[in-house]
Simulated scan of single mutants.
Amino acid sequence: MATHMTGTREAWLAQRLDLLEAEKELTRRSDEIARQRQSLPWVRVDKAYRFETEQGSATLADLFAGRSQLVVYHFMFGPDYRAGCPSCSSIADGFDGFVVHLANHDVTLTAVSRAPLAKLQVYKERMGWSFPWASSVGSDFNFDFNVSFTQEQQHEGTVEYNYQRGRHAMDMEPAPAPVVEFATSCGTDAPTYARDRPGMSTFVLEDGVVYHTYSTYARGLDGIWGMYQWLDRAPKGRNETGVWWRRHDEYENETQRA
């Protein structure tokens, strides 16, 4: 027996048309917010950041790979992790599909993490990914863009993440159960795991100068988390009671079920 309200096709259509108007308004509002993002002032990046890539040592300008726009996904993979964050991994599962389209629209997409390049490459091979992934180990890049923090900042409650300064949920003691679960899956403890956070930053290269244009964090990443866009349109929505997702090679043949 169905546990949800049921009705006639006519009743469904009437409500669907109301929903359509709401969806159109959301689309128009989303377009306006995109224009607001693009109208933010550009901030010149003067610090000489260095990264390790498969092609060798690189500057921030080198990461553009000959294009004028750069999108960086701040992937949670700290130096002491043994595997990448499961949430970041599920987001990154979609990168290979559209990185080629972005590249052909003058946009380079790369992930950046603090773990050493060799560790990133091993995990990248495990996941079967091919998108660019640079290591910022030894650089201030992650700290300057508010996705990595020191032990002292955690203890003092001065972490500045998602444009808020203070003690965040991930810094609570004892740590929330999902943080402990993810930390364990990454081969580390909760405080160490929480010293890296997810985010996205975008940059533009004009007349040889790199400018920072936008950054977003936490639920600001929902729009690029592909599985949630599908679940929001599925009959039962996100239907979450806790952490349910895993790295794609850790499910037990879910896609093979009859």
Rank of each mutant, 00 (worst) to 15 (best):
M1A: 14
T6I: 12
G7W: 03
Q15S: 15
R16A: 15
L17T: 07
L20Q: 14
R28D: 15
R29W: 08
D31R: 08
E32S: 09
I33M: 11
A34H: 14
R35D: 12
Q38I: 04
V45P: 15
R50F: 02
E52K: 06
E54L: 08
V72F: 05
Y73Q: 00
G78N: 07
R82S: 07
A83W: 07
F95S: 09
V107A: 07
T108P: 00
L109F: 09
R114M: 11
R114I: 09
L120S: 06
R126Q: 12
R126G: 05
S130N: 11
S130Y: 15
V137E: 08
D140R: 14
N142Q: 13
F143Y: 15
S148D: 14
T150L: 02
G157A: 05
Y161W: 02
Y163E: 10
R167M: 04
A175T: 00
P176L: 15
A177T: 01
P178Q: 09
V179W: 03
A183I: 06
A194V: 03
D196A: 07
D196M: 04
H212L: 07
R219P: 08
L221F: 06
Q229P: 05
W230P: 05
L231A: 14
G237K: 08
T241E: 13
G242V: 07
R247I: 14
D249G: 13
E250T: 12
A258Y: 04
